[in-house]
Amino acid sequence: MRILVVSDAWLPQVNGVVRTMQTVVAELRARGDVVEVVGPDRFPTLPTPGYAEIRLALAPRRRLARIVDEFRPDAVHVATEGPLGWAMRAICRRRGWRFTTSFHTKFPDYLHARTGIPKSWSWALMRRFHAAGSGTLCATPTLAAELRGRGFAHVVPWSRGVDLSRFSPDAAEQGAAEAWESLPRPIFLCAGRVAVEKNLEAFLALDLPGSKVVVGDGPQRAALMRRFPEVHFTGWRENGALARAYARADVFVFPSRTDTFGLVLLEALASGTPVAAYPVTGPLDVIADSPVGALDEDLRAACLRALQAKREECRVHAARFSWSACAQRFRDSLLHCS
């Protein structure tokens, strides 16, 4: 099958959407499908306000139409609601093509946190965008229920996976030690984009024993480093360095209330590190009542309880999530909805 994926989130960006689509595309190609990904790297771009590292395609519709004509897809998936997503949506509607979409990010919550724009306005726009597709893929049952409650139709479950060979307890024994590893134990680690929507302050302000470490970068990093000088900020860590950070921490803390899944949860668990989080979309579906972590509206209590989890059980729990199954579900959805 010739599959066209259009996404405003693509390399060289580093985030969960890119990691998901990159891995699924690799799985599909390995099975023999021809997959073309169209991202902002093919167009003139402008920086996203507040996120200079994220570039958005500028007036992409004509050039995108030419790319589509050259590729001749059997199925089209629109992964994001940015300029490329809207342009591909318009092309499909004009030509009478069916297409699927996916819901990765609660932009209404993000925009409200950063600008104060009423959530209802943004949710109405998101609902309109996805209503044009024949199926909206989303990562968890909790998110699916929320979307249906907000008036989204044709919601299709589509879980995630984790690379068990990359993220493993064995990573703790590989590579040199970093400065933060000599800090007092236990080490409470948080990894991801350092931005207001990730709710990092809820973690950084906690009165916890041991030390706090933040792996990642973003627009809020400098301000948070000034406010919390006792916290160790490492900056971005990728590949082996990120895997080592997960494996060498004592608890992974996920303070976000707006993520739709949280790939980092699976990466930490695969590394043998228990999770502490709020009982919200993502953690509710990945952790639930499993003994591999703790969910609590009192995040400090969750952090302390997570210390009691058995690391070997964390690894076993993560192994239930397969990228192979994720890719198959994606392909099946294209066939069913196209």
Rank of each mutant, 00 (worst) to 15 (best):
A294C: 13
D170Y: 13
A302M: 02
Y51A: 09
P219S: 12
A144C: 11
R148E: 14
A57G: 10
P274M: 10
D285F: 03
R55P: 04
G39T: 03
L11F: 12
T142C: 03
E297P: 10
R72V: 10
H232E: 14
R128F: 14
S182D: 13
A288V: 06
H130T: 07
P47I: 01
S271N: 06
V213E: 04
H336Y: 02
V292F: 01
F233T: 05
W86Y: 14
E297C: 11
M88R: 14
E297T: 12
E27H: 08
D163T: 04
R63N: 10
A294G: 07
A9N: 14
T140V: 04
L64K: 06
L164R: 15
F103E: 03
W10C: 11
G262K: 00
E173D: 13
V5Q: 14
R19E: 04
L125I: 13
R226P: 10
G161S: 09
G282Y: 01
A90V: 13
A52L: 09
L269A: 05
F129C: 07
R221L: 12
V316M: 08
N15C: 09
E81W: 08
L147D: 03
L265F: 02
D217T: 10
W97F: 12
L334W: 00
A90M: 14
A131M: 06
I91R: 15
G116N: 04
A139P: 06
G149E: 01
L56T: 09
Q13F: 00
T234Q: 11
L206S: 04
F71R: 05
D285H: 05
D250Y: 03
Y51T: 06
C138A: 08
T234M: 08
V214K: 04
M225F: 11
S165P: 14
D298H: 09
M225P: 14
L335D: 12
A202G: 07
L335I: 06
L125R: 15
R300Q: 10
R2K: 15
A132R: 12
A268C: 07
M225Y: 12
A325H: 04
F129G: 07
H317L: 00
A309K: 11
I187T: 15
R305S: 12
T142P: 05
F167L: 08
H77Q: 14
E313I: 04
Y110C: 08
P184C: 11
L46Y: 09
R221D: 11
R315L: 05
A131V: 05
L111D: 11
W97L: 14
E178Y: 15
T23M: 03
W236P: 12
P186W: 09
V231M: 04
P279I: 02
A179W: 05
S211D: 06
L200M: 07
Q22W: 00
P73F: 07
D259Q: 01
T105H: 13
G82Q: 03
V5H: 15
R331D: 00
S159E: 11
